[in-house]
């Protein structure tokens, strides 16, 4: 990095990618992969999302691992971030639920209320 300007340019570019600015209907799937998430079974869940998204031939979807959000008791946690910033947090996600999230939330546009963190965390 040579200058602050260089960094700011890189930041703007990285921000566009992260905010999905150039994607139509972009969606970011964040799978919590701290030690707690991985121990609770996040790895196969991440793989399941990759497989499901490919199987349904969905585009403009970014699947990524993230660290721990702190809600360790509810892992594996998956957040669906839509382009407008709407964030839906699903907890205790297994392979079955991953499939359902792709089919219901991503394809049909229905959020699965029953599995949302805010619903479960009473």
């Amino acid at each position: 990095m040579k200058s602050l300007d260089d960094l700011q340019k890189l930041r703007d570019k990285a921000k566009r990618t992260m905010d999905m600015t150039d994607l139509v209907d972009g969606v970011r799937i964040q799978v919590g992969m701290g030690t707690c998430g991985i121990a609770a079974g996040a790895r196969p869940v991440l793989q399941k999302f990759i497989d499901e998204v490919a199987a349904h031939n969905l585009h403009n979807i970014i699947i990524t691992q993230v660290g721990c959000m702190g809600e360790c008791a509810f892992e594996p946690i998956v957040e669906i971030v839509e382009k407008d910033g709407t964030k839906t947090t699903y907890c205790k996600v297994g392979k079955r639920l991953a499939e359902e999230i792709v089919e219901e939330h991503l394809i049909n546009g229905n959020r699965l209320d029953a599995y949302m963190l805010s619903t479960i965390k009473r």
Binding site: M1, G34, G70
Partner: peptide, 20 residues
Amino acid sequence: NCGQINPTDINEYIARDGYL
């Protein structure tokens, strides 16, 4: 940034004003 960015990608840290 925990749980918000991909920790294996420096660009995501930078997108969040990292190293600024």
